[in-house]
């Protein structure tokens, strides 16, 4: 379901490929991103530009991906709409993830860190 784009500095951008990331598809999303990590990707940018809604299963999938990448790499999120931003705030996950406005901003920050 995911779409990936490779950028400079070995950063891989992932778009979830669904408007709603929910109990129906969150496990598939997580499994596909974890497969990227297993294949050696260590700098991940997840772009939510095309995602309109995220439920607790979607948040749980992101937590699982963050745990998987651990200290071996970097996971950054961008493109959150107001509803998803609010979801992160309610669940206090805005304190857990590095969140940027859009892909260019996230890429610049990630590139400067490498």
């Amino acid at each position: 379901m995911i779409n990936t784009t490779k950028h400079d500095h070995d950063i891989v951008a992932v778009r979830p490929g669904a408007e709603r990331l929910t109990a129906f598809n969150a496990k598939t999303f997580k499994d596909e991103v974890v497969a990227l990590i297993d294949d050696g990707v260590t700098s991940l940018l997840i772009d939510f530009k095309d995602v309109t809604f995220l439920d607790s299963s979607g948040l749980g999938a992101l937590a699982g991906i963050l745990k998987k990448i651990g200290h071996r790499g970097d996971l950054v999120i961008c493109g959150l709409n107001s509803d998803i931003t609010q979801m992160f705030r309610i669940c206090r996950m805005d304190r857990v993830f590095k969140i940027y406005r859009d892909v260019p901003t996230a890429l610049q920050t990630m590139s400067e860190a490498t």
Binding site: D55, S56, S57, L59, G60, A61, A63, G64, L66, K67, I90, C91, R92, M93, R95, V96
Partner: peptide, 21 residues
Amino acid sequence: ELSNVDEMAESGRGLGLILEC
């Protein structure tokens, strides 16, 4: 309660979200 859910937990937020929202 959402404030009691481990930040890295992969489940356990859904029911708290209903009560919160």
